[in-house]
Amino acid sequence: MLSRVAESLFWTARNVERAEDLARLIDVTATRSVDRAVDADRRWRSAFGVAGIEPPFDRRVDRASAVEHIVFGVETQLSIAACVRIARRNAIGVRAELTTEVWECINGLYLFVEAHSPRAVGPDGASTFLRSIRDTAQAFGGLCDATLAHDDAWEFLRLGRFLERAAMTARVLREIEPDAGPHVWELVLEVCCASGPFARARQQSFEPNEALAFLALSATFPRSLRFCLHEVDHALHRLSGAPVGTFADGAERTSGRIAASLDFAGANDLAREGTANFAARIARSLDDLGSAVTEVYFPRVPVG
């Protein structure tokens, strides 16, 4: 397929995923901060860190500033509103590749976000608003899976979705302080949608290292780094036609390397490396992977 079309699909999915993840991040952080006011400043700063957005230097870092900058920020490409706009703009260019359901979903999400402002959302409405974003973004993934043929177009959507999801999980882990107590880990699990699945998998008392191992290494939890990397790896192999286990290009080599490092790592290895170090290393590798995908499938300069 045309590189432009593939690239637009990839960025549509990445931005929708990011909007969903950020919506959950803000919602969970807000809910948790109500219980533990003393810790609130730290938690909001780490939310800004996850989003990659500079917190306002002349103001308190709190829910209001998070809503203003992370949700609605216009000066950045990284806010939820910006992601939704970017996702829709990309989707428009590939409208012919999408089903009506998928198009209407993304267009609806855009119209919904555009119709709101920090003022309109207000101090109490944020949760409802963020949940709507999250639900619609999740519906987008579901509609892609359920209404599109699982051909190359779909693979590029999958690639974008899981690459972004892995990157978000890595960034969340990167923001965890070495001395983080159980309440921080609980928040992190919730941000990653993992509280329930983790509790079911563990059942006993809570251990930070086990939470880390779950978010990084679980083979079955769909937001773990390992799970996401395997999805990415499958998508890449479906696109190149190369059998899994062989490597046709730079993107497959990079994804294979990250996936293997997660396959063979144990909870103790992660603990030894330190959560932040480990997460930062993975985040860097994922950036490399993004560049490799761009180079292989959407080269800016036509191949000589």
């Binding site: 432009r4 590029f156 499938y297 080269p299 191949v303």
Partner: peptide, 8 residues
């Protein structure tokens, strides 16, 4: 040429 994911 058109730029495609499988080359020109």
């Amino acid at each position: 040429y058109a730029k495609t994911t499988r080359g020109p």
